[in-house]
């Protein structure tokens, strides 16, 4: 197939047949497959495919990633062609659409107290740093909140319990 646009189902089917999607829900494909699969791992596809225990559903990741790619390319083309018609996007409240989307992705992640804690700490880090650092740094720094997971002892295998 030559063009992804309008052929999302076909592409997904092809990728599925190519073995990109593993029934065991694990990153166990050949190197080239993993390399390609990784290209579809972006914020949204990653968040939506998270199963909450550090595992990810590759089928959801693939479907969401391909959909996003098609939507982005199409949207970019439309924006280049017709963007001036819209004028200032903030007039349409589009700048609130992004945090709303991320919030909608966040809520299903709040499966336990630890996730709620990571959410609170992550948001706090980002807000505190925003006035003092260049854009992007607050987000990256907020990822440190995931270290709360190190406190998780209940699933530690016996051989590690003594450390």
């Amino acid at each position: 197939m030559g063009d992804v646009h309008g052929h999302r189902d076909v592409l997904a089917q092809l990728l599925r047949e190519a073995g990109l999607v593993d029934a065991a829900a694990r990153w166990s494909g050949a190197d080239a497959r993993v390399f390609l699969h990784a290209q579809l791992t972006v914020d949204e596809s990653w968040a939506i495919s998270a199963e909450g225990d550090g595992r990810f559903n590759p089928k959801v990741l693939l479907g969401a990633g391909v959909t996003l790619y098609a939507a982005w390319v199409t949207g970019t083309v439309l924006g280049v062609a017709f963007g001036d018609v819209i004028g200032d996007p903030s007039t349409w409240g589009l700048d609130a659409a992004f945090p709303a989307l991320f919030l909608a992705l966040l809520v299903p992640q709040l499966r336990d107290r630890r996730a709620v804690g990571a959410t609170a700490v992550g948001a706090a880090i980002a807000i505190v740093l925003t006035p003092f650092t260049p854009a992007g740094v607050p987000i990256i720094a907020a990822s440190l909140a995931c270290l709360l997971g190190l406190g998780k002892r209940d699933e530690t295998p016996p051989e590690e319990a003594g450390r």
Binding site: W46, A50, P99, L106, A118, A126, P138, I139, A142, A145
Partner: peptide, 11 residues
């Protein structure tokens, strides 16, 4: 995921 998404919402 929750940490980064929370930061994205906040920022």
């Amino acid at each position: 995921a929750p940490a980064l998404l929370a930061a994205l919402v906040a920022v």
